[in-house]
Simulated assay, not measured.
Amino acid sequence: MSAFAFLGAAFAEIAGCFAFWAWIRLGKSPWWIAPGILSLCLFAYLLTLPALDQAGRSYAAYGGVYIMSALCWLWLVEGTKPDRWDVLGAAVCLIGAAIIYLGPRGQTAG
């Protein structure tokens, strides 16, 4: 469930931000803002679904998925294939996200 929530959140965040990018940077109609805002609201909701008790930890784990998704957007929507440095960076981020998300949590002495 969390993987789908993270992937959905990433798509919604990127699409929402791209709507503003298209309006401001590409000269598209201001009407692009309305679906952009709805998409960003969906992003915020989806990020509440993963099974982590702390918001900050959920956001940190999501970061790796977001980076990978942004590079997929770059390739599939913007037509620019990620280079090896993009892929390496995304892999490092996904490994970090997995450590944050899957790391054992327990009581520590202190």
Results as ranks from 00 to 15, higher is better:
residue 6 F to G: 02
residue 101 Y to M: 10
residue 26 L to N: 07
residue 49 L to D: 02
residue 59 Y to P: 05
residue 57 R to Y: 15
residue 25 R to Q: 12
residue 78 E to Q: 15
residue 7 L to D: 01
residue 56 G to Y: 15
residue 43 F to T: 01
residue 58 S to C: 15
residue 109 A to L: 05
residue 51 A to R: 15
residue 104 P to A: 06
residue 40 L to M: 09
residue 74 L to W: 12
residue 82 P to A: 00
residue 89 G to K: 00
residue 47 L to S: 00
residue 72 C to S: 12
residue 34 A to T: 05
residue 62 Y to C: 05
residue 24 I to D: 03
residue 69 S to C: 14
residue 96 G to V: 01
residue 53 D to K: 15
residue 2 S to K: 11
residue 105 R to T: 02
residue 65 V to S: 01
residue 89 G to D: 01
residue 10 A to H: 10
residue 94 L to R: 06
residue 42 L to C: 14
residue 54 Q to H: 15
residue 73 W to A: 04
residue 93 C to N: 11
residue 60 A to P: 00
residue 71 L to N: 04
residue 46 L to R: 08
residue 88 L to F: 15
residue 57 R to A: 13
residue 2 S to H: 10
residue 9 A to M: 01
residue 79 G to M: 02
residue 22 A to I: 03
residue 17 C to E: 05
residue 47 L to F: 07
residue 59 Y to A: 09
residue 33 I to H: 04
residue 22 A to F: 04
residue 64 G to M: 07
residue 70 A to D: 02
residue 95 I to V: 15
residue 28 K to A: 11
residue 30 P to A: 07
residue 102 L to M: 12
residue 32 W to K: 03
residue 99 I to N: 07
residue 41 C to A: 15
residue 80 T to Q: 15
residue 46 L to T: 04
residue 4 F to H: 12
residue 93 C to Q: 08
residue 100 I to T: 02
residue 50 P to E: 06
residue 37 I to F: 12
residue 90 A to N: 00
residue 75 W to T: 08
residue 59 Y to M: 13
residue 49 L to H: 10
residue 19 A to T: 02
residue 70 A to P: 01
residue 66 Y to Q: 04
residue 31 W to R: 12
residue 35 P to Q: 09
residue 60 A to D: 03
residue 16 G to Q: 03
residue 99 I to Y: 03
residue 85 W to K: 13
residue 80 T to E: 14
residue 49 L to G: 06
residue 19 A to I: 03
residue 71 L to F: 02
residue 10 A to S: 15
residue 40 L to E: 05
residue 18 F to S: 07
residue 57 R to E: 08
residue 60 A to E: 10
residue 60 A to C: 07
residue 71 L to K: 12
residue 3 A to R: 13
residue 94 L to G: 02
residue 45 Y to W: 15
residue 50 P to G: 10
residue 48 T to N: 06
residue 24 I to P: 00
residue 97 A to H: 07
residue 68 M to P: 06
residue 38 L to W: 11
residue 60 A to W: 14
residue 87 V to M: 03
residue 65 V to K: 04
residue 73 W to F: 14
residue 29 S to G: 06
residue 100 I to F: 09
residue 57 R to G: 05
residue 82 P to K: 10
residue 56 G to E: 09
residue 65 V to Y: 11
residue 97 A to Q: 06
residue 110 G to A: 10
residue 77 V to E: 06
residue 87 V to Q: 05
residue 15 A to S: 09
residue 7 L to Q: 08
residue 68 M to T: 02
residue 41 C to Q: 11
residue 41 C to I: 14
residue 94 L to C: 03
residue 72 C to N: 10
residue 30 P to T: 05
residue 3 A to V: 13
residue 99 I to C: 07
residue 55 A to N: 13
residue 21 W to P: 01
residue 74 L to A: 11
residue 21 W to H: 00
residue 28 K to V: 00
residue 73 W to L: 06
residue 34 A to S: 10
residue 25 R to W: 12
residue 94 L to Y: 01
